[in-house]
Design a protein around this nucleic acid. Structure first.
Length: 473
RNA sequence: GGUGGCGUAGCCAAGUGGUAAGGCCAGAGUCUGCAAAACUCUUAUUCGUCGGUUCGAUUCCGACCGCCACCUCCA
């Protein structure tokens, strides 16, 4: 298995530090609002990496943090007239809810910054003791020139950083590159007691402290949006590695940006798409398919057309899987046919693994899946029962792969079981009556049933084996 | 200004030093009382432009054009 490590800007063999358990830290959202599609992309990439590692036999411990105290939260809370704590709590809960709706499996640990203040203070103190930090007016700054490797993740040289005309100059800092780990409290803002007076943690120290607390001094995979590479991840490395003397993270994964209608999604552009809004308009699997239709290191554009394409692709997949379902488990059925299909199944399996093994190439993996879908449809269209064992295998191979990607079977049946059963019986009764009418060539009655059911979002399909129906939206 | 990335059919998107996955759309067909749905088939001598290396490049190198991201809070 290979992972593109942004630390070295190349594909590297993935060898976990501890073969018994792969550790992953994923930078979660700052909970000043509902999460948007960009957050969702990063969270989904992490989810799929984790699912795939599990599929490949690894145990995985995933930590995904929530930044629940920062300037934006304080500012937004003030606007809304609620406490920062309350706002962060609400949005944190909403984040879990939205993630679940996207079919993201919960992290093993979802630490919150405000619940790790002692760990952060302790880490800051360690850095102060090592001379890698200094205190000014109750704030603590990291002394970047104490860390010789600063810039190694983002590939930036000190002079490049210093030359940046856009760096905000804080005259009190020794070096423009220095960043705060502890911010002295301002009146009216939430604050915590510390050896340097009341204040709150800086953004970067949160992740260093929480990652190390829950995963140890060295973690296998650290993931986040590409915008976090600098300065956030760079600063995490500086803090953590200077404090422990160990490599902080062995593989750095950066997820490319999601764009909206060709433009960068941003507050200033007024084009934020919230995940919950997308999920109100499209099924979970469609949104997931869209998000993995391009490789995670390439930009992806969110627009109606793209989502419609994913809808079409999912329809094709689901039709195939629905048709295949009746063969589920029939491995021992009679018949030796389906040799070509057997080959196609093996090809799909190996292509799927090759694709995912190569830096989690979900787009390529989807290609393998859909190639087999065509193969299956072809086999199904000749409808040779001798193929049953091969079709059963195809069903299993397909659902297994799709479940790694989370594009099949994620939806939960929401309706009450009893009602569903009764509805099914009623619809089947109508179909029976319609069939009687059809055998009398009473097309008026037949069409009326079809049309009226259509109005109720129940679509009848006349096939060779008789009429079937399904709910459409 | 510095750093990095991208440019593949109508659209989206994989990919490889040896001759272009997959999806959507479109066209044709199968099925059907009609329809819808579904399924099948077809659709890039060509991978931004121009050079170079090579027996051979979309794939490597160089230049150019175009687009984008980061350097500031941001997934």
């Amino acid at each position: 298995m290979k992972i593109y490590n942004s630390m070295n800007r190349q594909l590297e063999d993935f060898v976990p530090l501890n073969p018994e358990q792969v550790s992953i830290y994923s930078c979660g959202p700052t909970v000043y609002d509902y999460i948007h599609m960009g957050n969702a992309r990063t969270a989904l990439v992490t989810d799929i990496i984790r699912r795939y590692l599990v599929y490949r036999g690894y145990n995985v411990k995933l930590v995904q943090n929530l930044t629940d105290i920062d300037d934006k939260i304080i500012g937004r809370a003030a606007e809304l007239g609620v406490s920062a704590k309350q706002l962060a709590h609400q949005n944190g809960e909403a984040f879990f809810e939205d993630s679940q709706r996207l079919g993201i499996q919960p992290a093993d640990v979802a630490p919150k910054a405000t619940e790790h203040i002692p760990e952060m203070i302790s880490l800051i103190q360690t850095l102060l003791d090592k001379g890698a930090a200094y205190v000014i007016d109750g704030s603590v700054y990291y002394r970047v020139n104490q860390f010789a490797e600063y810039g190694k993740l983002s590939g930036r040289k000190p002079e490049d950083l210093l030359a940046g005309a856009r760096v905000e100059v804080d005259e009190r800092k020794e070096d423009p590159r220095d960043f705060d780990m502890w911010k002295a409290a301002k009146p009216g803002e939430p604050s915590w007691e510390s050896p340097w007076g009341r204040g709150r943690p800086g953004w970067h120290i949160e992740c260093s402290a929480m990652a190390m607390k829950h995963l140890g001094e060295t973690i296998d995979i650290h993931a986040g949006g590409e915008d976090l590479q600098f300065p956030h991840h760079e600063n995490e490395i500086a803090q953590s590695e200077l404090a422990t003397g160990c490599t902080f993270a062995r593989y750095w994964i950066h997820v490319a940006f999601l764009k909206i209608d060709g433009r960068r999604m941003g507050k200033s552009e007024q084009n934020f798409i919230l995940l919950r809004d997308a999920l109100d308009n499209y099924p979970t699997e469609v949104v997931r398919h869209f998000l993995i239709s391009a490789h995670y290191r390439h930009p992806l554009d969110y627009n109606q057309e793209s989502l419609a394409k994913s809808e079409g692709a999912l329809r094709r997949l689901n039709n195939c899987l629905d048709a295949l379902k009746k063969y589920d488990g029939q491995f021992e059925a009679n018949g030796t046919g389906g040799a070509a299909l057997q080959d196609a199944i093996q090809t799909m399996k190996s292509q799927f693994i090759t694709a995912m093994d190569t830096d989690f190439n979900t787009a390529q993996a989807l290609g393998a899946i859909f190639t087999l879908v065509s193969e299956v449809n072809r086999s199904l269209s000749v409808s040779d029962e001798a193929d049953a064992p091969a079709l059963a295998q195809a069903y299993q191979a397909l659902t297994e792969s799709c479940q790694v990607l989370g594009i099949y079977g994620a939806d939960v049946e929401r309706s009450d079981e009893g009602d569903v059963e009764q509805r099914d019986q009623l619809v089947n009764l109508l179909l029976e009556i319609r069939q009687d009418a059809r055998s009398r060539k009473d097309w008026d009655t037949s069409d009326k049933i079809r049309d009226r059911l259509k109005e109720l979002n129940i679509e009848i399909q006349d096939t060779r084996e008789g009429a079937t129906w399904k709910i459409v939206s």
